[in-house]
Amino acid sequence: MDGEELTPPGSGSDPAVGLRAVGALHRLAEKVEATNVALAREQGWSWEQIGDALGVSKQSVHAKHGK
């Protein structure tokens, strides 16, 4: 996969368009993660199970989502 396959349609060579898309994807990913971590906790998942599913340590997921 080369960089052109990752460039949004119509963006040409303007990195501002691509960077805005990356920012939007990051924000979406954060919302999806938070929603699913909350759902997992409601269903009784441990921080270790959630961390394993996300590929991070239980400490890091707890620090980020354990309010």
Rank of each mutant, 00 (worst) to 15 (best):
A29K: 06
N36K: 10
G12R: 11
Q43P: 04
S46W: 00
H26G: 01
A34F: 02
L54Q: 09
W47H: 01
P9R: 13
V22E: 03
S13F: 15
G51R: 06
K64Q: 06
L54W: 04
A63H: 09
P9S: 12
L19M: 13
A34P: 02
E30P: 00
W45V: 06
L19D: 13
W47C: 00
R20S: 11
A16R: 15
V61G: 03
G66D: 07
P8D: 06
H65S: 04
P8Q: 08
W47E: 00
G3P: 06
V56T: 08
H62C: 06
A40L: 12
G44E: 02
E30S: 07
E42M: 11
E5L: 15
E4C: 11
A16M: 09
P15S: 11
R27M: 01
S13L: 14
V32D: 07
W47M: 01
V37Q: 04
A16Y: 08
S13H: 12
P15Q: 13
A24K: 07
E5D: 15
E42F: 08
K67Q: 13
G23M: 10
H62V: 00
S60Y: 05
E48I: 00
G66S: 05
K58A: 09
P15E: 14
N36R: 14
A24D: 11
L25W: 04
Q43A: 14
V17T: 14
R41E: 05
A63V: 08
K67R: 15
V61Y: 02
S60N: 13
D52S: 05
L39E: 14
G44L: 02
S46Y: 00
A53W: 04
G44I: 02
G18E: 14
E5R: 15
A53T: 05
W45M: 09
A21K: 10
L54K: 07
E42Q: 15
A40R: 09
V17R: 15
L28Q: 07
S11H: 12
K31A: 08
I50L: 03
G51T: 06
E33N: 02
E30T: 06
A24R: 08
Q43I: 04
R20T: 10
V56M: 05
H62M: 11
A21P: 01
G44N: 02
K31Y: 02
E30H: 08
Q49W: 00
P15W: 13
A38E: 15
P9D: 13
S46R: 01
A63Y: 10
D14H: 14
A34I: 02
G10L: 09
T7V: 15
S57Q: 02
R27W: 01
A34M: 05
Q59M: 04
S11I: 11
G55V: 08
K31H: 08
M1I: 11
V17S: 12
R41V: 08
G23Q: 12
K64W: 00
G23V: 06
P9F: 13
G51I: 05
G23E: 15
P15L: 12
R41H: 03
E33A: 04
H65N: 06
Q49S: 07
V17K: 14
D2E: 15
G66V: 05
A29R: 10
M1V: 12
P8C: 07
A63W: 08
G66I: 06
R41P: 05
A16T: 15
T7P: 07
H26Y: 08
L54H: 07
V37P: 03
E33C: 04
R20K: 11
K64A: 07
G51P: 06
P15A: 12
